[in-house]
């Protein structure tokens, strides 16, 4: 059993190495063919040809973080449902109820966020 998992890891490692090398290969191969003439103007940020007036890395508004927050909570929920769902097919109604309670518990969080207006894009 655990030998099979070991085999999986080696296979995935080999696959990942191939996946990493292949996109980098053309970059290395054509390094000396493609033109490379960096100049001060070329290396400015693009911004539609207008000179950059504000620094892009500045504190940004919170709406994004609200979504990320609700996201992580629901991600954990779905992931635990993945653990439970394969056995549900042959499970009793009681087991379904147990899973249902869990879903309702977490769904309350969504309801709260909704009521507080955290899901509104500002």
């Amino acid at each position: 059993m655990s030998e099979e998992l070991l085999a999986d890891v080696f296979f995935l490692l080999g696959f990942g190495v191939a996946g990493l090398l292949l996109p980098m290969l053309p970059l290395l191969l054509f390094r000396y063919i493609r033109p490379q003439h960096p100049s001060a103007v070329k290396m400015e940020p693009y911004e539609s040809g207008v000179v950059q007036t504000t620094a892009p890395r500045r504190p940004f508004h919170m709406a994004y973080y609200n979504f990320a927050l609700v996201f992580i909570v629901f991600e954990v929920e779905t992931v635990l449902l993945f653990a439970v769902s394969p056995v549900l097919r042959d499970a009793s109604w009681m087991d379904l109820l147990k899973a249902g309670i869990f879903i309702v518990l977490v769904a309350d969080g969504l309801f709260y966020a909704w009521r507080k207006g955290a899901l509104v894009w500002k």
Binding site: P59, M62, Y65, L69, I72, V73, E75, V76, L80, A83
Partner: peptide
């Protein structure tokens, strides 16, 4: 371990919320 991962995720969510509040 799964409980640990879940709690770590919650901790990150609340911790980062605190950090952002402090930053503001």
């Amino acid at each position: 371990a799964l409980v640990g991962i879940s709690i770590a995720a919650c901790e990150a969510a609340v911790g980062l919320a605190l950090i952002l509040a402090v930053f503001r």
